[in-house]
Nucleic acid binder design. Structure first.
Lengths: 166, 166
DNA sequence: GTTAGTGCAAACCTTTTGCAGCTCT
DNA sequence: AGAGCTGCAAAAGGTTTGCACTAAC
């Protein structure tokens, strides 16, 4: 399983597998979602109430430096914190709906192609790559349009009136 | 000029063009680089010592919401702050060397192709998209390898020894 | 004249650091 | 045994907010 991979990788590097780290790694790997440090801390605290928020940050930093997790911000939809995911999966882009917050993942060869092109074009050695996209999901596009109309009806001022004067 | 575009766009939306905003817009547009809020503040203060840092943040936020600038983090090479650039240019990826900090921009059709694919695949309406890549530029790859060797020579411990024992 | 925008101070949120004590190997 | 890790408290860095005053339209 992926779990073994990360823990094995740490062991090989001479990094200690403490109780706290095992717990955090478990949570990161088993969570299907993208967790931020605070969510991870909350979940971990339920299993180990003594665990400190600082340990979460230190563990995430270590995993990031060791290239075992990737750091995302998901277009800052939920704020300025960072989200984390394991690197087990194939490269993918994150597609974030700015209205409902849903995050979809895009796999597929245009990403690999882009990556190869960048490496070739600059002779660059890529260690980490992120593509994040914000907009409206198919479900929210109509709702969003309706919301805009309503807003315009409620406040029939602001933008357009001034243009008519010219 | 691009300057006119942003200022005109703001005017149309009924957003006031204050002295401070004109100054900040000028700096953003004329700067060839990616500026963070603090750099922008420092530069602005030289022309208007009274200008407050908060105004910089508020202006950037407004421009971001109005989709007149894009927000980047350049793989957090320089810290956790955000960088900004105008949206005048064609879509491009940012390629950041994690050793020397150089930022290159990748244009080219793989990006457009990726964008179209995401829109088609999910029926998604993209408002903003970012691709950021971290690694070593052609110039730093050799230097980096040498640094690693030296580090291994200086501290001949850590990782590999343990593996030999098996 | 109104309303939006500014400056100032203070708060806020996320993340990092210093240090004493604990624990994994 | 001893380096590495944790918890706690405190600080730091980046960004936002409340409020009274000012300026753009």
């Amino acid at each position: 399983m992926a779990g073994q991979d990360i823990q094995g990788s740490l062991k090989k590097r001479g990094i200690r597998l403490t109780r706290q780290r095992r717990l955090l790694l478990d949570l990161i790997e088993k969570s299907g979602q993208h967790l931020d440090a605070e969510q991870l801390y909350e979940q971990a605290k339920q299993k180990d109430p003594k665990l400190n928020r600082v340990t979460v940050y230190r563990t995430l930093k270590m995993l990031k430096q060791g290239q075992l997790v990737d750091e995302l911000d998901l277009m800052h939809y939920g704020g300025d914190q960072h989200y984390y995911e394991t690197r087990m999966k194939q490269a993918h882009a994150h597609v974030v709906c700015l209205r409902c917050g849903k995050v979809e993942e895009f796999y597929g060869e245009p990403l690999q192609r882009l990556r190869r092109q960048i490496e070739m074009h600059f002779g660059f050695q890529i260690l980490v790559a992120r593509t994040e996209v914000g907009g409206y999901c198919s479900n929210c596009q109509g709702l969003r349009a309706r919301e805009m109309e309503e807003a315009a009806a409620a406040a029939p001022l602001a933008v357009t009136p001034k243009e008519r004067r010219n």
